[in-house]
């Protein structure tokens, strides 16, 4: 027994230590597992993006094996399902650009003015009521906007301009602009409210009015955030589908006149994707080429926005 006692005495501390070590090990393992789970979650989004790009590029390569790239860019007709097939993306792009231009010419000025009002002028109570209502605009399903454009805005515009066709880019663009207003105003307002009070006080102390302070100090100070709001608005406009499919018509038409009907890239994709084209046919491949164009366009917008944000970033 006397031989055991000293042995037990020496093993006691090492046992306690090994318990502590084991605890630490299990804690480290636990943290590794959490880290791994988080990493996988992050990977999902990366893989999704990479997967989409991969499919778009792969299917587009098949398309471009049949259609010369130069024709794709310069042809002035888009008739992929005809016997005499033409694949001029400009035709669809013109519809997208025109409808987006109409939408942005509404959303950007109105969104900015609303943001300035809510951030710099509106009393607390007004802002608390107006903001949720405004954000509701962005939550309305786009199919409802589409029918609103087709059955309400177009007839209204026809009273002013009777020759306006039933399907047209103007009504669709206007309604799309209304839909985009909350995206522009909400982010712009957040950016303006983040401008420190000390800058506003500096301006007021110089004898500036509220309006001068808002336009000459707060807006320039928030310009990087406001620019991102615009970029988001552009992306929304370019990618919008349902309003255009419903109200602007599905007829490919190379035009920059908003009074005409025209198909956009997105409307065309919907049209083809809902049709019963055989898998692997050239008509089926076109939607991937069109989708890739759309994606490159929004990517360019996002990169442009990123560059803008960097170059305008101000340290207060």
């Amino acid at each position: 027994m006397s031989a055991v006692a000293p042995g037990a005495a020496t093993s006691m501390p090492s046992e306690a230590m090994s318990v502590r070590l084991a605890r630490r090990r299990s804690r480290i393992v636990g943290e590794r597992i959490i880290e791994a789970v988080l990493f996988v979650a992050a990977l999902v989004s990366v893989f999704t993006t990479v997967g989409i790009v991969y499919i778009l590029v792969k299917e587009s390569v098949v398309f471009f094996e049949e259609v010369p790239f130069w024709d794709f860019l310069t042809d002035t007709q888009w008739t992929p399902l005809f016997d005499d097939a033409h694949f001029g993306i400009m035709v669809l792009l013109s519809g997208t650009l025109t409808s987006s231009a109409v939408a942005l010419s509404i959303a950007i000025p109105l969104g900015t003015i609303i943001a300035i009002y809510l951030s710099e002028f509106a009393p607390f109570a007004v802002r608390e009521v107006a903001k949720p209502f405004l954000e509701l605009l962005g939550g309305v399903p786009t199919i409802i906007y589409g029918y609103f454009a087709l059955l309400f805005v177009t007839p209204l515009l026809q009273k002013i301009y009777p020759e306006l066709p039933g399907f047209n880019l103007l009504a669709a663009g206007i309604v799309m602009g209304i839909m985009i207003i909350p995206y522009v105003s909400s982010i712009s307002e957040d950016a303006m409210r983040a401008v420190p009070m000390s800058l506003r006080e500096g301006s007021y102390a110089m004898g500036a009015t509220r309006f001068q302070t808002a336009v000459k100090v707060v807006v320039p100070a928030a310009i990087s955030g406001i620019a991102s709001a615009y970029i988001l608005g552009i992306s929304r406009a370019v990618g919008e589908t349902m309003i255009l499919a419903v109200a602007a018509g599905m007829q490919p038409n190379l035009t920059f006149n908003p009074l005409e009907p025209a198909a956009t890239i997105t409307a065309y994709i919907v049209q083809v994707a809902l049709g019963d084209l055989p898998h692997g046919s050239i008509g089926y491949q076109t939607i991937f080429a069109a989708g890739l164009t759309l994606m490159l366009f929004t990517l360019a917008c996002n990169i442009g926005g990123h560059v803008l944000r960097k170059s305008f970033r101000e340290a207060y």
Binding site: P196, S198, L199, E201, G202, S203, A205, K216, V217, P220, A221, I223, E314
Partner: peptide, 10 residues
């Protein structure tokens, strides 16, 4: 007025 923290405009 001149403030506590320099507050130049952007």
């Amino acid at each position: 007025m001149v403030f506590q923290k320099p507050n130049p405009f952007p």
